[in-house]
Lab assay of single mutants.
Amino acid sequence: MTEYKLVVVGAGGVGKSALTIQLIQNHFVDEYDPTIEDSYRKQVVIDGETCLLDILDTAGQEEYSAMRDQYMRTGEGFLCVFAINNTKSFEDIHHYREQIKRVKDSEDVPMVLVGNKCDLPSRTVDTKQAQDLARSYGIPFIETSAKTRQGVDDAFYTLVREIRKHKEKMSKDGKKKKKKSKTKCVIM
Rank of each mutant, 00 (worst) to 15 (best):
Y32E: 03
V45F: 09
R73Q: 07
A18V: 05
M67Q: 00
P110W: 02
I46A: 12
F90H: 07
V103H: 04
N26W: 11
S89L: 02
G48W: 06
P110C: 03
Y4A: 09
D173S: 14
D132N: 06
L53W: 07
A66G: 08
I142L: 05
K42I: 10
D33G: 00
I93K: 01
K16V: 00
T2I: 08
G60C: 00
E76H: 05
G13Q: 12
L133I: 09
T158R: 06
I36A: 06
G13M: 09
R123Q: 12
S181T: 15
K177Q: 15
K42D: 10
G138M: 06
G15M: 02
E62I: 04
V9C: 14
H166A: 10
A134L: 12
P110G: 02
C80W: 02
Y32K: 00
P34Y: 05
V109P: 04
A134V: 10
E31C: 11
L52S: 14
G75H: 06
V8P: 02
L23I: 10
C80I: 05
I36S: 01
K172T: 15
L79A: 05
K128Q: 05
Q99R: 03
D105H: 07
M67A: 00
V125P: 10
D69V: 01
V44L: 13
I100W: 03
A155G: 12
S39R: 04
S39V: 12
M72I: 03
D119L: 13
V8S: 05
S181R: 13
K42A: 08
I46N: 13
A83V: 03
D132G: 06
M188P: 15
D54K: 03
S145R: 15
G13L: 10
S145G: 15
Y64C: 01
E162G: 07
P110R: 03
G13C: 11
F156K: 00
S17D: 01
D154R: 07
Q129L: 07
E63H: 04
S17P: 02
D69I: 03
Y4L: 15
R97M: 15
T144V: 12
D108T: 05
K104Q: 13
C51M: 12
K169A: 07
D132M: 05
I100S: 02
G115Q: 09
K182A: 15
K177M: 11
D119V: 05
F156N: 05
G15S: 02
K172E: 08
D54G: 03
R68Q: 04
V112D: 03
L53V: 09
R123L: 10
S145P: 02
T124D: 12
T158N: 05
G75W: 03
A18R: 03
H166K: 12
A11S: 11
K16S: 13
V103L: 06
K179E: 12
T74S: 07
F82Y: 11
D33F: 01
G10F: 03
F156R: 01
F28L: 03
G12T: 09
P121S: 11
T74W: 12
R73H: 10
V81D: 03
D54V: 02
C51G: 10
M67V: 01
L19E: 15
G10I: 02
K169V: 04
G15Y: 02
S106R: 14
Y71W: 02
C51E: 13
D38P: 02
V7W: 11
Y40Q: 00
E107C: 09
F28A: 02
K177T: 11
L159F: 03
I142Y: 08
F141W: 03
K184F: 04
K16F: 01
K180V: 15
E76D: 15
K178L: 12
Q129N: 10
K176L: 12
R68L: 00
T35G: 00
A18W: 01
A66L: 04
C185D: 15
R97Q: 07
A11Y: 11
E162S: 10
I187Q: 09
D105C: 06
D92H: 03
K165A: 12
D38F: 00
L159S: 02
K88E: 13
V44Y: 10
K180G: 14
G10T: 01
V152N: 09
G115M: 12
Q150H: 02
K167W: 08
I139A: 05
I84E: 15
D33S: 01
A130D: 12
E162H: 08
T183I: 09
F156H: 10
H27W: 10
S136G: 07
D108W: 06
T20E: 02
E63D: 07
R73A: 08
S106D: 12
S171F: 06
K169M: 07
K184S: 10
A59W: 00
C185F: 05
K178F: 09
A155S: 11
M72H: 01
K5W: 02
H27Q: 14
T50R: 11
T87N: 15
Q70N: 11
T20A: 05
G115V: 12
E162C: 04
R102G: 05
S39Y: 01
A83S: 14
Y96V: 12
F90N: 04
L53I: 11
A146L: 04
R149F: 06
I84T: 14
D57G: 00
V125I: 10
D154I: 06
V81F: 06
K175L: 08
A130K: 09
V103A: 05
I55M: 05
K182I: 13
G12F: 07
K101M: 15
M111P: 04
T74C: 10
L79R: 00
K147E: 08
L56C: 04
D54A: 03
D126T: 07
Q61C: 09
V7F: 04
V114A: 04
G138V: 03
R164W: 07
G174F: 02
M188L: 05
D153N: 07
T50G: 08
K117H: 14
Y4G: 10
S122L: 08
K178T: 14
V29Q: 11
V112A: 05
I142D: 08
K5R: 12
P34K: 02
F156Q: 02
Y96H: 06
Y32L: 03
G138I: 03
V160F: 10
T183C: 03
V152P: 11
G48L: 06
H95R: 12
T144P: 12
P121L: 08
V186T: 15
G174C: 03
V45Q: 15
V109A: 05
R97E: 06
P121M: 07
H95W: 03
I139R: 07
S89C: 15
D154M: 06
T58S: 05
G13Y: 07
E37A: 00
K128S: 06
D54H: 03
F82T: 15
V152G: 10
Q131N: 10
V112W: 03
M188C: 07
Y137I: 09
L133Y: 15
A59S: 05
L6C: 10
V152E: 12
F82P: 01
Y32R: 02
I46G: 14
E49Y: 12
C51L: 13
V125F: 08
V109L: 04
Q61I: 04
R123G: 13
H166Q: 10
I139F: 05
N86E: 13
Q131S: 12
G77I: 12
C118W: 06
V109M: 04
R102W: 06
T50S: 10
R73S: 06
G60K: 00
G60W: 00
K88P: 15
E31H: 07
N86R: 07
E162D: 06
L53A: 09
R41N: 13
I24W: 02
I21W: 04
G48H: 08
T144E: 02
S39F: 02
Y32D: 01
K182S: 06
D173M: 03
M111R: 01
Q22K: 08
I139P: 07
I46C: 09
I24Q: 10
F78G: 01
C185N: 05
M188N: 14
D57A: 00
R102Y: 05
K182L: 09
D57P: 00
E62M: 03
H94V: 05
L53E: 08
L113G: 03
D153R: 05
Y137D: 09
Q70V: 02
G60N: 00
Y157L: 12
D33W: 03
V14S: 09
E76V: 10
Q61P: 03
D105L: 12
Q25D: 15
T87I: 12
N26A: 12
E168D: 09
L120Y: 14
L53K: 09
T158V: 10
D47P: 06
H166V: 11
V9S: 09
L113F: 11
K184Q: 07
I187N: 11
I36W: 00
R123V: 10
I24G: 05
Q22G: 08
D126M: 09
